[in-house]
Design a protein around this nucleic acid. Sequence first.
DNA 1: TTGAAAGCGATACCAG
DNA 2: CTGGTATCGCTTTCAA
Lengths: 342, 342
Amino acid sequence: MNDIARVAGVSLATVDRVLNARAGVRDVTIDKVNKAIEELGYVRDTAAANLARKRQYRLLFIIPETTNEFMTALDKKIADQGARLIHQRTTLHRQKVPPFDPGAVVAALDAIDPDQSDGVALIAVETPEVCEAVQRVRDRGLAVVALVSDLPSSDRDHFVGIDNIAAGRTAARLMGRFVGKRGDILVITGSRLARDHVERRTGFDELLAEEFPEVKVVASIEGRDDPALIRKMLPEVFAAHPDLGGVYSSAAGTPGLIRFLEETGPYPDLAVVAHELTPASRAALGSGTIDVVINQDTGHIVRSATRLLRATVDRVPFDRTQERIRIDIYLKDNLPQQGGVA
Amino acid sequence: MNDIARVAGVSLATVDRVLNARAGVRDVTIDKVNKAIEELGYVRDTAAANLARKRQYRLLFIIPETTNEFMTALDKKIADQGARLIHQRTTLHRQKVPPFDPGAVVAALDAIDPDQSDGVALIAVETPEVCEAVQRVRDRGLAVVALVSDLPSSDRDHFVGIDNIAAGRTAARLMGRFVGKRGDILVITGSRLARDHVERRTGFDELLAEEFPEVKVVASIEGRDDPALIRKMLPEVFAAHPDLGGVYSSAAGTPGLIRFLEETGPYPDLAVVAHELTPASRAALGSGTIDVVINQDTGHIVRSATRLLRATVDRVPFDRTQERIRIDIYLKDNLPQQGGVA
DNA sequence: TTGAAAGCGATACCAG
DNA sequence: CTGGTATCGCTTTCAA
């Protein structure tokens, strides 16, 4: 920057004005500076800028206080990331709200002090009230991203999570190819309210109809993400459908299915597809109780959300390909090894 | 740091000495400073440190000058990353060497000027000479990571790529479940010299033997990663094995297979598993010519390599879970959308 | 519309 | 052993 100032024959302050597109510089001066920038192949040092600016990124994660394995994992990742990011001028705060309670989310959003936070990441059921509250937060100058379950159109660009219709289709194709001759399927869903759950189911049904007409969903239970409930419901379903060829566990609560299968099994010819790689599903994959796990990487979700939030706060572009959360497919063989820092 | 100096009643310079564990400070002083650090909950600002230190990360990528889709993609990702990282005091340089030529790699390694580079990432065939050259580079103070194909034991911790045995097993399990009654398989390999190729084949054969004894590899061709060669070899193989149930393309050169299948097909009952998500394989997945693609994300590989290299240069720990390259499985349905920056 | 100068949080060199 | 001080690249406030 010093060089530029010298070459352009202006002061440092003016160079800064041009670089940051601040007002109050004559066009001729702007041109002079830009020429010098060009000439010198100048690249800006973001770190130094942030230092001088004393920039802090204070980000708030609003997540349901459910204790299922997925949310627990996500919560932990937020904490982990927070610990690393503290060295990069960013602090992560977590706030738990009652699950499936739009009112609680709205209250949490409206309670945010814009002087205390720069951005918010939230997991919420999509309702008009929530969307309005999100808009209010935006109006107060904060960056907002939706996590895991999408919020409607206006926010599309700031959704961090997988395409759940595609995830459902992926599950269906694997199911279609894994089931043997017996094409009767049981689907375990979560909640009718959660957009992600509904979308998975939609995608699953779609693809089966399109490409595996001989495979049919013959039973469907709403497990409410509750392993104990699921464990209790299954005996009856299996009794009613002794010829079941596959089970698709499309939401949380998979541990209930696993317990049932391991306590009453084995079921060597049953194809089992579940969502989310957790300690329980990982173990079940290892033992053969489950055949496939469809996953969205919680670590990636948290990193991506923080990158997006920081980029939005800074009003700088970001790398879409890096922020796209993949639909991971895990078999027994390609499980990532576990392990920590070193 | 100023606060610490004040609280501890010492100078800034001394605080710096303690923080960086430099010699020449009395134990009592060290204690005083540490107390102050504790008390104030001090967290160090890496960016400021790097600024003061004028730290630059000059990283060199040594990659084969092959023009297959995978290497091309990798090369592009290095260029892309380089463009972003320039704002973070790190520059990426690329150097191409003749493929499968240990001598060329050794020469390139020995030619590195320690005053011009801080770290090296390389793709190389594992030979004793290469390993020795790597050691020499290390001795000259540079950080080194192996990409895609592992180098032996001493470097294990600095390998960026997938577990190729596991990748082969993954391919085999999918093949085993996707093939119908006709269990005759053709395997297309790359080079006997490349460790990654050999490992995939090993894993593939292992798992088939263990879990799908009825599925058998009846033919195997060495395609040398050359699409044209593969295209030319296939008619004869298919003529000799009219009952082929599956094809596993375990190396590069998949476009040759795709061309053959699309020109002479369709083969509705043929299960096709290939490696690496490229424009060609993506299209083939979409059209149904290929059923599964096993992938290692080139963007992730490059980012991971640079993070590792920088962490090594700085002698700081890194997040193993983030650096583990996943074995991605792609079906038609879970393909990541393409797209760029915004 | 432009410039001078102080300062962000850390490092490094030179004195004492 | 310890302290003072210039400096890194950029932002910001105050004057001119």
